[in-house]
């Protein structure tokens, strides 16, 4: 995961099985990913998950944007997206449908963003 990894490209290729696109419906680079927890608790983790899957899953117990998962794992966005697509296919996470900013930013969000930026 770091720069001194002997074969980063080969390693990444292995992580995704050479896939550049995630399984299932496409999702945005900033879509919110949330680990599935039901009354019965988290679903059982199927075999075949790599440590990166598990790390992403743990992180997404809190709703987390795809880009943040990538930053946390230190992996490219597209590789991260493939891994998250796997987790979704296994029913372990939900991923938001894309929603255009113009439709989701109401007045409250707008003012929060402006104030937030000014106070930085």
């Amino acid at each position: 995961m770091t720069g001194d990894d002997p074969g980063p490209l080969i390693r990444l290729y292995g992580l995704t099985g050479g896939r550049a696109r995630p399984a299932g419906e496409s999702f945005d680079l900033v879509a919110i990913v949330t680990a599935v927890v039901t009354a019965a608790g988290a679903p059982a983790e199927p075999a075949g998950l790599v440590p990166e899957h598990l790390a992403a899953l743990a992180l997404c117990r809190r709703p987390t944007p795809v880009a943040d998962v990538a930053a946390y794992l230190g992996l490219p966005l597209n590789v991260t997206r493939v891994l998250l697509g796997d987790l979704r296919r296994e029913g372990l996470v939900t991923i938001d449908r894309p929603r255009p900013a113009a439709q989701t930013i109401d007045e409250g969000i707008y003012r929060e963003v402006l104030h937030g930026l000014r106070r930085l």
């Binding site: 896939r19 680079l29 880009a67 943040d68 937030g116």
Partner: peptide, 27 residues
């Protein structure tokens, strides 16, 4: 089918984050 390497390319992308509050971020 495993020949995908032939049709892929790499591109550099950078991104950063600003947290407005828990649950609201700018990327």
């Amino acid at each position: 089918s495993g020949v995908e390497a032939k049709t892929t390319t790499t591109v550099a992308l950078d991104f950063g984050r600003i947290t407005i509050r828990e649950g609201l971020w700018l990327y």
